[in-house]
Amino acid sequence: MLEYVARLDRRWIFLMMLLAVAIPILFQLRFPETPTPLAKAVFDAVENLPPGSKVLLAFDYDPASEGELGPMATAFVLHCAKKGHKMYFIALWPVGPQMIDDQIRKVIKTDFPNLVYGEDYVNLGFKPGNEGVIKVIVTDLRQLYTTDDKGVNIDKIPMMQGIRSVQDFDLVINVSAGYPGTKEWVQYAATPYGIPVVGGCTGVQAPLLYPYIPDQLPGLLGAIKGAAEYEKLVVDRYDLADVGRYLEGLRRMGPQLVAHMLMIFLIIAGNVIYFAQRRQERYRP
């Protein structure tokens, strides 16, 4: 019996994982959420700016990490729009512009049709070069961004007046799936020039970014839980708790909980079998 379980075909484990995630989604399990200090710090960084502040939203992620980061990006755009900030979108990942488009469609076009492109928000698009791009735009944005993503001359965009470099922004919000991402924004913008940067990142990156907190990075949303916490803060503040589109992170915490339980169960089960086997071996003549 023990032997059989120990040699269990891994496809059964795959099936368990599939069910652990699928069932809570199908039954739409929901759990309450309590925001942690780091999420509050991110929220405050956006909330405490006066309306009309210039916020650079750097979306450095792709479809592969959209599951974790999409909800954060949505919540960031929603928060900035509600607060009346000017939004400037850029991307350091080739697929970033698609992520920006998605969020603009999902939040701005749907719920803020009165916001005017070029006056309230602008999509500056993608530039390759990773940290090389940050390095340039942190002192002179127009060197690389001669036009916006639509090819409109940057000088003809009303909200670009008075923006010479990243240093002219009141806040940089970075949603990051890896390299280049929050780390590079901290290294090349926050640390040398003291530009305030807050971020949202994947679970893999989050622990690695903690050393920057709080001196170089005042707030950080880690993985889907961070997204859910921030979402909760935003929807509570602006009374949007019944708009399904804005509860993606909170919704995803359901499968998350069940799957985490499964992981703990698997680790414990693996160990129980291991120690039981060792004991058997020891007593075997």
Partner: peptide, 20 residues
């Protein structure tokens, strides 16, 4: 691309059972 990355959830579960 998104599904390829989603596969890792399965492998991490299998590793948890066998390796830790």
């Amino acid at each position: 691309t998104a599904t390829m990355f989603a596969m890792l959830a399965f492998y991490v579960a299998s590793a948890a059972f066998r390796a830790f």
